[in-house]
Amino acid sequence: MSAPLLSVRKLRVEFATRKGPLVALDDVSFDIARGEVLGVVGESGAGKSLTGLAIMGLIDPPGRIVSGEILLDGERIDHLSEDRMRLIRGPRIAMIFQDPLTSLDPLFTVGDQLVETIRAHQPLSAQAARQKAIGLLGEVGIPAPEQRVDSWPHEFSGGMRQRVVIALAMCAEPELIVADEPTTALDVSVQAQIIRLLKRLARERGLSVMLVTHDMGVIAETADRVAVMYAGRVVETGPVREVVHAALHPYAQGLMAAIPTLETRAVRLAQIPGSMPRLAPRTRPYCAFHTRCDKRFEPCSSIAPPVTRMGGREVACWLHEPVPAGAAR
């Protein structure tokens, strides 16, 4: 396998608070290959959005990356100046957010926003940029793009606005799109269309996608590989078929058990009793999931499980790791 397009290594993000730092991401590692769709799942607050923002260099104070690396095509991008990062955002990596209703500037037409974005990255005339904008709107499935290009954002429905958002993300022809729950705010009826659009763009343009979602069904259908996050850590990664059918981590097993069938699409994540722990001021000296885990044993509550590689899969769980002698109390 060639070098991954994106590689996140041991990423740690903290928030400075009045009572000291809180660890929001701890030891997060994963790769995305060219043309690959990586699904990212985990319950709300697990750190999925933060991971996406970290890749974009968009974590605002009081949050910051304390350690770890983010590599794009083998080059570190986690410590670049704002000016250099601007050359990455758009032409290399683009990000789309959960709520298409608030993602567009209400005071500018869709065309203005597209043209501005295109010209921020390419030396095109206003006329040429407008033609390109119309082409993009057509490509993402907006009917009559020549007319719609002059519409205001509020004149589009939620699903259409998310298409516009995707067109905006495509303006500078990125290699990777971070899609943070792109369908969560949409009607169930249009969710599938947006996912299909993303899949098509990924296939036609050879895009890589980091697809964050609550919907395990979408992951099962769309992603090549999946990363499961829990309390700021990646607890399991692997090819989607293997993880869906034979998850290694008990939390991932719980999630997969509740994958909705086609008939019960509306059902969201599994109902695992208990809730995720709050952010802690330092690395947890135990497995964050142990309080909810029915397979826990001695080491789980006293040592954090390391990440174990098992073929193409990785898991952080004592069930799959020899317990060091004398560690159990």
Binding site: A94, M95, I96, L168
Partner: peptide, 25 residues
């Protein structure tokens, strides 16, 4: 707001984000 974050995520220059989008809103 979200649309400013999205503007940053598209790599728009700070000048445009601050004085075109943020100021007008």
């Amino acid at each position: 707001s979200d649309h400013i974050r999205f503007a940053r995520a598209r790599g728009l220059p700070a000048r445009s984000i601050n004085f075109r989008h943020a100021l007008k809103n």
